[in-house]
Amino acid sequence: MSQSKCIKISDDDKGYPLEMFCIPKHYENHLSHVMIPKGLIDDRTEKLAKDIKEKLSDEPLVCLCVLKGGYKFFADLVDHLKSMNNVQNDPIPLKVDFIRLRSYVDDKSTGDVEVIGGDALHHLEGKNVLIVEDIVDTGKTMQYLLRKLQVHNPKSINVVSLLVKRTPLSVGYKPDFAGFEIPNHFVIGYALDYNEYFRDLQHVCVINEAGKLKYAS
């Protein structure tokens, strides 16, 4: 499996000061810095949509959103794909579907994957599937999902993730398309959460210790 290039953020990157952006008042004391501003996410997502369009040509595609953290990236990516369909002569027929997985408590992966949605996955048989994920951390969750989907015999499966984390716990899995490769920090915002908080942040930010303590489960 070949992976597309992504933007790599170095381990010593300090990001952007919070005061340079609009941050909800109730979160200001619980963030370290902005890692990826919303505008940069938007531009990178548009390029990912173009890469996906080029690789997957004009065959019908089922875009499978991994909830909840992937919903914002999913919506923006699908919007870009639809916009391309409106102006190009070889549109990709699109369908959307959703699945929900859970593997985190606080900032730690439990190692177990709980499937909360996806009762109708048998409808993916014979289809070209694009899994849209917010972040690939250790890779165990995505490997589990891929095994679960393969049971239903899709025609093809590709994975696009906004973020890929560099972590010593990685099993080595890499998605087909990735937006950013990031350091081993716990990130929130742009629909990524910490115990269901911070999804309403526009930017991808790094939570600080005070935030972990305040919003612990």
Rank of each mutant, 00 (worst) to 15 (best):
163 L>R: 03
186 F>C: 07
161 S>H: 07
190 Y>G: 00
164 V>N: 12
156 S>Q: 09
152 H>A: 00
183 P>Y: 06
196 E>T: 14
168 P>W: 06
163 L>V: 05
162 L>S: 01
192 L>E: 03
188 I>T: 08
179 G>M: 11
186 F>H: 08
188 I>Y: 07
185 H>R: 15
183 P>E: 09
167 T>S: 14
162 L>D: 03
166 R>H: 11
172 G>E: 07
161 S>A: 15
195 N>T: 09
175 P>D: 04
194 Y>T: 03
164 V>L: 13
156 S>E: 09
154 P>Q: 07
174 K>M: 13
181 E>W: 02
190 Y>H: 15
157 I>Q: 04
165 K>N: 02
173 Y>D: 02
187 V>I: 14
154 P>E: 00
185 H>V: 12
169 L>C: 11
165 K>Y: 06
169 L>P: 04
160 V>H: 01
184 N>A: 08
193 D>L: 03
158 N>D: 12
165 K>D: 06
170 S>M: 08
153 N>P: 00
178 A>G: 10
183 P>N: 09
195 N>S: 13
163 L>K: 06
193 D>W: 14
160 V>W: 02
186 F>N: 07
175 P>S: 13
152 H>Y: 15
195 N>K: 08
154 P>C: 03
187 V>N: 05
170 S>E: 08
162 L>C: 07
160 V>P: 01
152 H>L: 04
196 E>Y: 11
173 Y>K: 00
196 E>G: 08
184 N>C: 14
189 G>V: 09
176 D>T: 12
163 L>C: 05
174 K>P: 06
